[in-house]
Design a protein around this nucleic acid. Structure first.
Lengths: 194, 194
DNA sequence: TCTATATATATCATTCTGATATATGTTGAC
DNA sequence: GTCAACATATATCAGAATGATATATATAGA
């Protein structure tokens, strides 16, 4: 589903700025869909050109000027028909699973570290969803997505606890892996000279 | 994780063509990472420019010419160091959850249809993973990813069975939703005139 | 025979990410 | 009291990925 459509959906929940929508993607939507400023602002621009949203500028006193967006009737109708026409599907993009798929190529120490990272991430997200479900003003659909998310995270944590030892037990370090032959070309997440 | 890196990883499992790698993404990798031809072929090109892979052409008798790719020592070392440096993380992109998040805007009939679609997809993927785990030649890491996938799918199916009725019970059709005011501009998945 | 599917490579417009630039207000540290 | 870090707010851009399309041949089935 296009970010443009998601933005339209977000605005169906109430008027908002691009920044507000970004926060929605980081919070409420986060556990099933992300989006960056680089897609949100252009989307709002196009939606306005198509007449699906309009905006008014709120002059800032204690904050920068805000462009407050609002769905038009056409925009709302468009979102509803797109929603109904969207097939139910999902797609995972998991570095964790890639790491485990190639676990036999990793030294035991690193593998243990990755498993610990996974547990931390799953626990943190579960805590977040549990805090969300304490709020009482959700629609039943939203409660359903939160509940589904919690179930999935509990299943992941359980699986991790029950199978971690087995994985590590059958894991052996390779005797002479070329661990110092690292390739710098693609490790650009590292520090640059300052 | 970049498709380029995943291609390198795929080639660490054995020599392959771009087409073979696509099949790997569709099968083994499918439940945690996808990739299209439009990213695989350019990735292989760049990997070759960087000296991480090489290729030889197999002239085709019963098939088109094949470019069989092979990892170099540098490529293998590069993949290992990238793998170790990749943080464990994951990200879901789920149209199903978006649909449910906005369930209150959908007519009951459509909502039921989406829930049925979800169940079908989850069941099919579970069957696929169960058929995969019957093969006995997997590393323990691969078994772990398959097992995790199965656990997650079972959790999703359980949740769906246990909460479907509650969701539908609290769901009411809106009295006069503008269901005929559909917007054609964005419904371009429909048929074109022929 | 004719269609659909599988093998195989390649390109392209559109879309999305992740980084960066620009400004201002607030909060907390020292 | 100053200074860094963070939150609010908008916008753009290079690079990466998607999904579609083009091209060609072989096989299987209707």
């Amino acid at each position: 589903m296009r970010v443009k459509t998601l933005c339209l959906g977000a605005l169906c929940l109430g008027d908002a700025t691009g920044y507000d929508i970004k926060k929605l993607f980081e919070n409420a939507f986060n556990h099933f869909h992300g989006a960056s400023f680089g897609s949100i602002y252009p989307s709002l621009k196009k939606l306005e050109e198509q007449g699906h949203v309009s905006h008014r500028v709120e002059a800032g006193e204690k904050h920068p000027d805000r462009k407050l967006f609002h769905v038009t009737d056409e925009g709302r109708a468009c979102f509803l028909s797109e929603l109904a026409g969207t097939p139910a599907s999902e797609q995972l993009r998991s570095e964790s699973m890639v790491l485990l798929f190639f676990a036999h190529l990793l030294p035991t120490e690193i593998l243990q570290q990755k498993l610990a990272e996974m547990e931390t991430h799953y626990s943190e997200e579960l805590n977040y969803l549990e805090s969300l479900s304490e709020c009482s003003n959700h629609t039943s659909g939203i409660d359903f997505t939160i509940g589904m998310g919690k179930s999935v995270l509990r299943a992941k944590l359980d699986y991790l606890h029950n199978h971690r030892k087995t994985l590590l037990a059958s894991h052996r370090d390779l005797p002479d892996s070329p661990w110092n032959a690292g390739c710098e070309q693609n490790n650009q997440q590292a520090e640059s000279s300052s």
